[in-house]
């Protein structure tokens, strides 16, 4: 394993946790559709995407665990931390609400993660580049899936258009956390380990805006403020409920094995 000093190891731990938490929380949200999707084909599609996300989370948790000063395993990180220790963007934890919200949340996320994993795959730190490259193939498909649904819901019926417009309007304020380039991320960037997130915003807009336009969705005005704080453990009320359900089994039976 590459040699990093104590400070860098701590920064890397938090940074990699952010990616893993994004993928796990989103994957869990998608898994909530299992058995409830509008049609069986979509039920399977969402379960597939959920499993992709959780598989990606697993790879990043395992890497994060190698930097943990408390010696926790990937499972410990996923199932034994409280919401204030989770570093996912607040968008991931937003509730499914309806199919349009789920698709909008997915599309906004995929439009970030495709260029992000493209960049991460170029990291000078191979252990981080490898799961990035593997995840890239998966998120490219996720983006294709969510984009096609945005077009069909937006340019579908009056009902599907208004539901998607509602989802886009409500989730818009959660779309900027991906691009935060904090001082600690900057230090990792200067070591050529991680990409400059802030530079990906333009790419995100190039992906998102034309599709919303084609889908006859009105692009929301930027709100007075964008949600922030997820990377530092600040979350909306929804994450606690999600964790309660997701973590109940390993917390109730700490020694349970698959």
């Amino acid at each position: 394993m590459a040699e990093f000093d104590v400070k860098t190891r701590e920064l890397l731990f938090n940074y990699i946790l952010g990616i893993a938490d994004d993928r796990l929380i989103l994957g869990h949200r998608l898994s909530e559709w299992c058995g409830h999707a509008p049609i069986i084909e979509e039920d399977i599609a969402m379960a597939n995407i959920a499993l992709d996300c959780i598989g990606e989370a697993d790879a990043f948790y395992k890497l994060a665990a190698t930097f943990d000063t408390e010696g926790r395993s990937a499972d410990d990180l996923a199932f034994l931390r409280d919401s204030t220790e989770f570093r996912n963007v607040q968008l991931s934890e937003q509730p499914n609400t309806d199919f349009a919200w789920t698709i909008a949340r997915q599309f906004f996320t995929d439009a970030f993660y495709v260029p992000f994993f493209e960049e991460l795959a170029k990291s000078s730190y191979e252990e981080l580049a490898a799961p990035g490259a593997k995840a890239l193939k998966e998120v490219k498909y996720h983006l294709r899936h969510s984009r096609e649904w945005i077009l069909r819901l937006g340019d579908g019926t009056e009902e599907s258009n208004s539901r998607l417009q509602d989802a886009v309007d409500n989730l818009w304020m959660y779309t900027r956390e991906f691009f935060e380039f904090s001082d600690s991320v900057k230090l990792l960037y200067e070591l050529d380990i991680v990409p400059d997130n802030s530079a990906l915003l333009e790419k995100w807009k190039e992906t998102v805006l034309p599709v919303l336009k084609d889908a006859l969705i009105t692009i929301p005005e930027d709100p007075p403020y964008f949600a922030t704080g997820g990377r530092n453990g600040l979350h909306t009320e929804h994450l606690g409920h999600l964790l309660a359900e997701m973590q109940v089994l390993p917390r109730t039976y700490p020694d349970a094995k698959w």
């Binding site: 599609a45 597939n48 096609e148």
Partner: peptide, 20 residues
Amino acid sequence: SLHAPDAEMAIQNARDVYSR
């Protein structure tokens, strides 16, 4: 076989249902 609204979605659904 499967249900889908159009060809593109049929291809995507086929990928998810029959080529997992």
